[in-house]
Design a protein around this nucleic acid. Structure first.
Lengths: 336, 336
DNA sequence: CTGACTTTGGACAGCGCTGCCAAGCGAGCG
DNA sequence: CGCTCGCTTGGCAGCGCTGTCCAAAGTCAG
């Protein structure tokens, strides 16, 4: 490994003290324009970057945050990562991607150990880690800044970026009702995610707003996986009368239901409408393409990083817009 | 931010010098079992982790590597990340996920700056960054260790983990030939990826091994995206006679072709067989489920990290097995 | 019992920066 | 004209570890 330049070499070439170079690098004031220009020139010429480790050790900040996740969906992780990474990069921060097991006994001490080891300046939490009181309390106690991504609508405490899952679920349910559907089933996600409870609530509210009785038997539990969507759909197909529409709590389960429909030779959307949630890559890759809700995953993560690193205290919570994407898996209810 | 414990506090409680604690933490010898035990006890009790920044600054190593990627596929990135992260974690290393633009003019200096800034101990390269001579040369010159993931079969230089793309492509082509297909089209990936050239070569070799003439008109260029697979398939559908099978260079393009077939009302697999490559999440989510090659993405990345951080010099290249997954998009060629 | 060697643990410098304090210097003011 | 003030710059300690060197204690053969 050939040796890297240090701040001292830069200062020598620029003809100033190394402390002055440090000032320029940190954008402090009290440096004359002339000096600043000269130093920046040398920095560019040497392609110099200050040692992150040294800054962390000497300073009060590490310019380093971690994104904690426990999510099996490549689509979701990829996009929150992309959004958070982008904003962190813009602000000169480094992002550590940290998979964790939310069910692990040692979750809290392990996270705190990571915080110590890396001198983290903050933490970005994604579901279901956003819903773990012990974790949040430990971070509060440590006075460690954190943001939560999409933790549902409760205006409780701390920084958060979110979307309106309830309203979105109402919207897509209304779309189904407008198409004439009256027997609409719902495949819900795992209990540990607030989003799945919110989506269920939206589904229910919209039904009732239209005078359609909520039927608990039409709600089947899934776990956000493709498999579980197929299983739920098959259970639904066995019912008499068969529902004319299925609203799945996410796209994976909707794709599972769609595959099950194909397998059972049920025409979509002619005999059965299917709607998903997320607008993941899957939504456009299956046939017919899925009607779904676009969830602004990337933007949520971007905003989360922004809130924590550059945010002002007056707007601790940010809500982003969703969008109904009507594609080809939903159509008019078959004449009964 | 409440204060973290330091190595000195640990040493005070354990009743040894702080240098001895350092020895225990680094698993050095010349520490008695009794002392080691006592120190480890205190470390566990305080949930102490040494400051990564301080170790990096003081020592010769940073226990930190980066994984460079420039790939739009969530599936691919998620799995290489998971594999590399796992092995790094096991070995006590930290992994920085670093998206880059392989076409950027400043790619090489930017990477070198990152190496300096983070004092990186090594780099993991994924396609297409594995194929950039300027980058590899710069790293060699810097004497910076790196591994390349799946750079095709050429036994050139340095550490690499790979799979046999040529053999895998032959295998799936043979599967199609065995089903009676004689007009087999190929949708190829982008030029910048060796894998797409290798897969094309395998397709061609197997055809010729069975005395089927290679027809360049049956090879359509795609770019590994769903869109491009659909476009290629539509071009193929316009040909007379229509090919009875399509082998796409990856699953995304195969899914695009499948959707195009549905759209054109061509029965799969009865009138048209489709095969993909990768066995990504998509392969099981579309209908019918895709016949494809399972590419050991996660394992490739795991092995790459292992090779670089724990490997021995005698096996600089590791080749992992693929597997033909016959599912439902391939069937006997229709009687002509 | 002695000298040479091994095992064990401590002292100290220094990694490359930032935080704090002080010095230099010209301008403004009574 | 002396003094203070504000801007700019430099000096120095020290962040929490590792590497190197050295001292003390234990081990063994002759």
């Amino acid at each position: 490994m050939s040796s890297r330049p240090t701040i001292k070499e830069v200062s020598k070439i620029a003809g100033v003290s190394f402390k002055t170079v440090s000032r320029v690098l940190n954008n402090e004031k009290h440096v004359s324009d002339e000096t600043r220009r000269r130093v920046e020139e040398v920095v560019a010429q040497l392609n110099f970057r200050p040692s992150h480790a040294a800054r962390t050790l000497a300073g009060r900040r590490s310019f380093q945050v971690a994104l904690l996740y426990d999510n099996p969906s490549p689509y979701y992780v990829f996009h929150i990562q992309a959004g958070a990474l982008e904003r962190c990069h813009e602000l000169g921060y480094r992002l550590l991607m940290q998979p964790v097991e939310s069910a692990a006994r040692d979750l809290v001490p392990d996270v705190l150990a990571l915080v110590d080891e890396a001198h983290l300046d903050g933490l970005i939490l994604s579901p279901p880690l956003t819903e773990m009181p012990e974790l949040l309390e430990a971070l509060d106690k440590r006075k460690l800044p954190y943001v939560r991504i999409a933790p549902g609508l409760r205006k409780d405490h701390g920084l958060a970026t979110t979307m309106d899952d309830v309203a979105a679920a109402r919207e897509i349910t209304r779309h189904l009702i407008d198409l004439g559907h009256r027997h609409i089933a719902f495949i819900r996600g795992p209990e540990s995610h607030v989003s799945s409870a919110d989506r269920l609530a939206g589904y229910r509210q919209e039904l009732e707003a239209h005078g359609i009785a909520f039927d608990p038997a039409l709600v089947i539990a899934g776990d956000y996986s493709f498999q579980s969507g197929g299983a739920a759909a098959r259970a639904l197909f066995a019912r008499e009368p068969r529902p004319t529409a299925i609203f799945a709590g996410n796209d994976d389960m909707a794709a599972g239901a769609l595959a099950a429909a194909h397998e059972a030779d049920i025409a979509v959307p002619d005999s059965l409408s299917i709607a998903g949630f997320d607008d993941s890559d899957l939504a456009r890759a299956v046939w017919p393409p899925l009607t779904t809700i676009r969830q602004p995953v990337r933007e949520l993560a971007y905003a989360a990083a922004d809130l924590m690193l550059a945010g002002n205290a007056v707007t601790p919570q940010v809500m982003l817009d969703h969008e109904l994407k009507v594609r080809a898996t939903t159509g008019p209810a078959p004449k009964g």
